[in-house]
Computed example of a mutant assay.
Amino acid sequence: MFQLTGNFILIASTILAIALPILAAVLWSRKPPASGGRPVAVLKFLGRIGLILVAQVTAMAALFFYVNDQYGFYASWSDLLGLGHDTPARIVQVNELHPGTGKLEVLNVHAKSGVSADTLVWLPPGYDASGSTRYPVVMFLPGQPSHPQNLFNEYDFGDVASQAIAAGTVRPFVGVFPPIMIAPPRDTECVDVPHGPQAQTWLTSDVPAAVQAKYRVEPPGKHWSLMGWSTGALCAAKLTLGHPTEFAAAVSLAGEFDTYLDNTTGDLFGSNTQLRNENSATWLYHQYGMRGTKLLMISSKQDEWAWIATEKMAQVTRGDPAVSLITFPAGGHNFHVYKPYISTALDWLDRAGSLG
């Protein structure tokens, strides 16, 4: 009931944020009783100040819960409070999907990168563990900080993908949702950090190996593709350009194309200029081109976080038939704005050939 990303806490905090100022106004409009002296007056004053403070804190909390719901910054109370002990948050419960929209499973990956983490796996309608058909894979990377289950839920991925498959616009595929925040609260930007978290190895080697070991999927290569949201979009673009034999196509939803450093990342490169270059999609494109891969960039022109970087990458790749661009005029950096483009992205991946 009191999950950080649940509707209950958002609705309850919003109701309280509205009700407390109304309650204060009602109490203050009442005719005061006969004076009980200075101590009573002081208590009344302090009570009013306390009520004002509680109302303000509640309003700020309601705003935080709303923004977190839109952006998926924190998946749980332990994420918010920094109690994850430097390990990715576990997926403790998987929501039931609507009938006919596939099946959702949790795959625990124990990896050579040193990471042990839960990865969400979506199996399309008709997937049969005992069958012989091998499925293409779409690996969808969340933002930072965020969580695979937030990404899946906020984009209604099971419903959207199942509808596209049923309509015949997309061939059946397996969806894989790994965490990219493998050493919380540090933002690794999907980099193999010298003497630190091996985030790129986790995504390009460990997760694919674990998925192949359990599910009937095609091997990495022409039938594996990446989608990413926000920081996950940066990862999707640079991993595809940097690993063209493992991933055939990438979709960037509101992403940047150059890894940056700040107080949440720390030193990711250890003063290694070449490593920094190899973690820039822009540099990789300048150096090697698309190398047989394809890229779709999707960005709102009002999304300041993503639009400047997307426009720059569009100029760099202008005229390249392997690069596509979808822009729209309005909307900020949140799930709600980009949700209508999930089906568009899947359709593009199918036409790009990475889904079969």
Rank of each mutant, 00 (worst) to 15 (best):
G37S: 08
G221M: 09
L23S: 02
Y341S: 08
I18H: 00
A281G: 08
G50H: 13
T240Q: 00
F65A: 01
L97Q: 08
A62Q: 02
V316E: 11
M139P: 07
G353E: 05
H98K: 15
T169P: 10
L53I: 12
V42C: 11
H85M: 13
F140Y: 12
A352I: 07
L296K: 00
K339D: 10
F2L: 00
L261D: 13
D118W: 09
V92N: 15
N95P: 15
P220H: 13
Q198S: 01
G331L: 09
W202T: 03
G289S: 10
W348D: 02
P220Q: 13
N263S: 14
L261Q: 15
S113P: 10
Q287L: 05
P194L: 09
Y155Q: 14
S146Y: 08
I91H: 01
T317D: 05
G84T: 15
G196A: 03
N7W: 13
D156A: 15
Q287M: 07
A210S: 04
S116K: 14
Y74Q: 04
Q56M: 15
G158N: 14
A24P: 03
V207Q: 01
K44E: 15
N272P: 03
P197W: 01
L295V: 00
D262P: 08
A41D: 11
I11G: 02
T87N: 12
A345L: 05
V323G: 11
P178H: 09
I298F: 07
P99K: 00
P184R: 12
G175E: 07
S130R: 14
A164T: 13
M290D: 03
P244G: 05
A209N: 09
K238I: 01
A210K: 02
P185I: 07
Q56S: 14
L239K: 04
D187S: 10
A75W: 04
L325N: 14
L261W: 12
V121L: 08
P142G: 06
L81E: 06
Y135M: 00
A89K: 10
D118I: 03
I52A: 12
T344D: 06
V109F: 07
I165F: 03
K103W: 10
V115Y: 03
N279C: 05
H85Y: 11
A111V: 02
T240W: 05
M60S: 06
F8S: 04
T310P: 09
G255R: 09
V57K: 03
W305E: 07
S132L: 06
A254N: 07
R171M: 13
F257L: 00
A89H: 12
T133E: 06
T119C: 12
A199H: 02
E96L: 11
R90Q: 11
E218D: 12
R186N: 09
